[in-house]
Design a protein around this nucleic acid. Sequence first.
DNA 1: GATCAATAGTTGACATGACAATGATTGTTG
DNA 2: CAACAATCATTGTCATGTCAACTATTGATC
Lengths: 190, 190
Amino acid sequence: MNAALSQLQAEIQQSSPFPSVQEEAVLSILRTADLIRTAIANLLAPAAITMQQYNVLRILRGAGSAGLPTLAIGDRMIESAPGITRLLDRMEAKGWVSRERCKLDRRVVYARISGEGLRLLAGLDEPLRASTVLSLTGVEESALGQMIQLLASVRQSIHPGAAAPTCEGVIGEASPTKSNQTSSSRRKHS
Amino acid sequence: MNAALSQLQAEIQQSSPFPSVQEEAVLSILRTADLIRTAIANLLAPAAITMQQYNVLRILRGAGSAGLPTLAIGDRMIESAPGITRLLDRMEAKGWVSRERCKLDRRVVYARISGEGLRLLAGLDEPLRASTVLSLTGVEESALGQMIQLLASVRQSIHPGAAAPTCEGVIGEASPTKSNQTSSSRRKHS
DNA sequence: GATCAATAGTTGACATGACAATGATTGTTG
DNA sequence: CAACAATCATTGTCATGTCAACTATTGATC
């Protein structure tokens, strides 16, 4: 086994110039996503807001004045609950959101976007939409439509049966980390 | 695939419709990349290795027995130098790599993959290649080729003039971090 | 040959993300 | 109603990424 192993090692040290089309496609997606993420992060940086925080703000704006429980935000972002708590901590410290414990169920904490948060979003929406990241001049719309379909089929191929969670135009969502299951099935609340 | 597409559209339109095909395309890319990242992370998890560490190992394997200076690894991963140092710290602690100071230029530290690191990689290559993530059954190869080209044009549109570095089959590469050139001045070597 | 700038790498401080465990509250069941 | 389980949110701890500052070494300049 040692002989075979070292042979394998020697072989490996030279190999890996051109993998499969599949691998190249995966690399392309990852590389492009990174580029997009970086570009958006750069756009948001002047406002001292991260992509995750921006997403939370957009979700809360969508939720309206009623606000949203912490875990409900987590569901929409597919992000773990602890992350949301700390995200909200920092955003509350910056005055973008406010939190209030629910009176009916004192376990629940509602988060609401503040006027300042709304102003921040309002000032960011346009620059984002106008940037090269979201305008994508140079790529025809028909091509983009094609790509959207292709990416959908890629997702389907990777993880069949996983419906895309609702995200109201959220820019970058987190990953479910481990075997992603939709935990949004049991949401009753009153 | 039409099902997935219309589902995505339907879900999003109910809360807030996509303002543009461009934005939908960007979201699709981000969502797909996240799915891929999660899937790969799950594949690597049993080996207790992260994607970044896996990338470093592959880069070092490609570098051969000569090894590679720390910053050279950072260049290939487009990752900041401090991150590489600490990444190598943990990987050295696990016995996957070894480091040695260069005798000619004592500022330089060469990192080399160890036999254990090579064995780890060898055991990981096949599961990765066999997984749904990199096999992408269900998507025709011609479609993948199309998508690769489309993604390339998207990258071009976002960040013109930045030719993607080759990266020897690295699975997930980091982003150029902050503002496309903030720290690139340090990154000038030949 | 001493001084100074550039380079390679490291460390410190901080933000973030993940998993596990815990606290507080509510609902359920005997 | 008392004990228990479930739920929501939080905190603890660790891994990681980033920026800024630092050390050690090299090369260049006078």
